[in-house]
Write a protein that binds this DNA or RNA. Sequence first.
DNA 1: AGGCTTCTAGCT
DNA 2: AGCTAGAAGCCT
Length: 665
Amino acid sequence: MAHDSVQLPCDGDGACMRCKVTPLAEETLTCSTCATPWHVACLASPPETLASTLQWQCPDCSGDPLPSAAGALDGTSSELFAAIRAIESDESLTEKEKARKRQELVSGRVEEDGDKEKKGKEKESSFLDVLDGSLNCSFCMLLPDRPVTTPCGHNFCLKCFQKWIGQGKRTCAKCRSIIPPKMASQPRINSTLVSVIRMAKLSKSNVAAGPMKVYHFVQNQDRPDKAFTTERAQKPGKANAASGKIFVTVPPDHFGPITAENDPARNQGVLVGECWEDRLECRQWGAHLPHVAGIAGQSNYGAQSVALSGGYEDDEDHGEWFLYTGSGGRDLSGNKRTNKEQSFDQKFEKMNEALRVSCKMGYPVRVVRSHKEKRSSYAPEKGVRYDGIFRIEKCWRKVGIQGFKVCRYLFVRCDNEPAPWTSDDHGDLPRPLPAIPELKKATDVFERKESPSWDFDEEDNRWRWKKPPPPSKKPVNAADLEERKRARKAIRQAHTTTVRERLLKEFSCLICRQVMNLPVTTPCAHNFCKSCFEAAFSGKTAIRERSKGGRTLRSQKNVLHCPSCPTDISDFLQNLQVNRELMGVIESLKQKSEENQDAVEELSEEQVDESEENADIGSGDSETAQKTKNPDPKDDLQNPPPDSDQKRTSKRMKVDTTQVVADCE
DNA sequence: AGGCTTCTAGCT
DNA sequence: AGCTAGAAGCCT
């Protein structure tokens, strides 16, 4: 190997000054910094990969030649070198096209992909006037994907950057500044830049302004697996968290057990005895959806589930059967969610009526018990547990412990699986109703007259639907619908917010909270105005300033923390570089937003609705298969049957179907 | 013990 | 379609 010898480039005539031969074009490499040609065969360490040839620096420019195990280049490489040179010399191509072609060659991307990208690029070009290509990753020449910013203020795709680092490079591909080891080993995504790029992409048709699409709106499938704290929540933890993803595919008004086919996540269904940390987690598995309320139901339709949480002192728990108290009768004015004190009578309305409908129809009701039910032997020690299917056999009103009337319900278990507390190896068998002493004083007693929908089948020896379950009135992914509702709201809000406000939000300095002026990006990917950043360390930087004097002062290294995180950014501070690319974009967006501000505020909602419609997902409905005539649950009650509701439901179902078709196309 | 938020049924 | 009050939570 020639690595001990002096390395020399080609002379003005193209002859290698070391071996004196004039190499063919494909046997030479041009330095990306000084543009001097070099004879590849005479290099001590030719670039290991073709990717690195694009950014190749000659031994003179790179300073410390990398130790390389690579020998002379093989034939295949030479061919590729030739191909690259051919691209370089093709005058019909623009610089960007050249870069893309080079990239295709090097990465071995298939032509089809290249075409797709080309289409993407054409799309991009319309907003490139905002970005002006200034943000493009120097490696792939595209807008950075998962952008990372070097301390010298240059932006790259995370993957491109990692590739570069993987080749042993420790200098910025753009300006040759040293990349700190920490940045090299743990590059951080610059989330502000992510916003910049998203904004730019979204503003393509309506330069810098456009309806600022709310990209952080979450659909059920995109919701996190766990409950999460929203941006506006002041308190951490689950006290005021939003629910995470709903894992099961049953509609929110689904009665009865949740079976394997509605559990795509695990394919086992919700099993009796299953436990969850809290009500939010319980909600995610569909056993009981409301995360505060004890009863899930609709007054004209029935109740699907209840929670026993010890919220009402009148409750009486006997495991396989229990006496449940209705909701209401309490003053929740102010900001309360609960109030133990009862101040008026409960009535059979709302959720209490829903329970009565379930009683009347003999619907299966899911029951969960919470650890908060302290007076019951059957409550779990921790969290919330699914205890299976119960039926409401009777309901009535009585004067409760606090002196006001409460609604009462007799729940009796009727599940095919044994209860979590029993040592039986089989589920429930029909049992005689327990004697209820308080019934003597009860008023408004209601008993089921018709045969129950959910009953024990003597032949099958198991509990099952004896009558078709009530058809669902809600789409399966009601959670999605709710999300979309919220998203619509958010979009509307985005319309009324000025671009300036959004700029402020997305590109504000973490110190002064204003739109950044001369932005600097720390290696830990936090962004500040240069002046704010410097001011934060005024008086502290002096110690390090004398380091250029001599190496004796090196021992005095002063640890300085990023204003936003504990990262030591003392090295970064020493040579503060403005992220000019980011600055350019902010400036341009600022300017254009001022021009368009009025127009933005007046934007019609049509655009929003359109995008909404497209984002809509048709909802299948497993229950529609059982569309037999449903007996009206309230036909013997004073209220009129919910005719209008039924019509509305079928109408919506039709709409949903067409949407599914549309979505498939 | 107080107070924050989420979710939604049931109204306008 | 939009709003509001009520809901058996949860955390400091």
